[in-house]
């Protein structure tokens, strides 16, 4: 029995029947043409949990996030997000999730406030004016709110992307290499923000930064060629085993 399967079995045995995992993935497979990008992936993430997802480029990490966030459909397998099926409740799931990726998902020819106002309308955010003020203050962009995003530095754009992702107060945050291209100041703001919202959110973070990923996580996973090759709780994390697999699979491929 593999370590990943053992962990799943253990989780199933210990699970309180009343408690629904925030993210539940069973035998998830995704193929593009003949290429199998995800191969029978199974895992669970409890509410408030933080999964750090490692793996080389092309391992299927971003595809996994796209499937969970309902952007693409799985080929087979089952997914539940807050107990809901993405195929049947896609809009409800999308209202609960936020994504911070290396692309800011912002309109360069709009200013910060116009971008947030646009996304606020998409999510029907209540008290939008107050929420925009609050978030722009948190990401320290209040003084640049009327400047076009095109004129922002990479760090500022990413800080605004954080505000965009948090605008509708999502309960699950997906972070796709969020530190990529950030200056130290932006990293500090990002980590402080992450700390401040940590308790009330569930996180899935794709990262190549082992130190940050392991420091933040409650579970760590390594994906390789669409399969889980490492999956452990942080308390039981075998760091030597993690590093050995990471070196062998991730570094070996890069």
């Amino acid at each position: 029995m593999t370590k990943a399967t053992e962990l799943l079995e253990k989780e199933k045995n210990e699970k309180d029947p009343a408690r629904i995992p925030e993210v539940e993935v069973n035998n998830l497979t995704k193929t593009f043409g003949k290429r199998k990008v995800l191969d029978k992936i199974s895992f669970e993430l409890e509410k408030g949990g933080f999964l750090s997802l490692f793996g080389p480029n092309g391992a299927g990490k971003t595809t996994l996030i796209k499937i969970i966030t309902t952007l693409i459909a799985p080929t087979s397998g089952e997914i539940r997000v807050s107990g809901m099926n993405p195929m049947k409740n896609s809009a409800a799931i999308r209202a609960k999730v936020g994504l911070i990726s290396h692309s800011p998902l912002l309109y360069l020819d709009l200013n910060a406030e116009e971008n947030l106002r646009f996304y606020g309308a998409m999510y029907s955010v209540h008290n939008l004016d107050e929420r925009i003020d609050e978030l722009l203050d948190q990401v320290e962009l209040g003084h640049r709110r009327y400047d076009l995003v095109r004129t922002y530095s990479k760090g500022m754009t990413q800080r605004l992307a954080i505000a965009r992702a948090l605008l509708h107060k999502p309960s699950i945050l997906f972070l796709d290499e969020p530190h990529s291209g950030l200056d130290p100041h932006a990293v500090d703001i990002f980590e402080n923000l992450l700390d401040s919202i940590r308790a009330e959110h569930t996180f899935i973070m794709i990262t190549h930064n082992i130190e940050r990923g392991l420091a933040l996580c409650s579970k760590a996973m390594i994906l390789y060629n669409g399969q889980i090759v490492f999956y452990q709780d942080k308390e039981e994390l075998d760091i030597d085993m993690f590093k050995s697999i990471y070196q062998q699979r991730v570094k070996g491929d890069s």
Partner: peptide, 18 residues
């Protein structure tokens, strides 16, 4: 073009928009 810039189409699709 604006939708494709910086992944905005993905941002739009990620929102609960029919």
């Amino acid at each position: 073009v604006h939708e494709k810039d910086e992944g905005c189409l993905e941002g739009l699709l990620l929102a609960p928009v029919d």
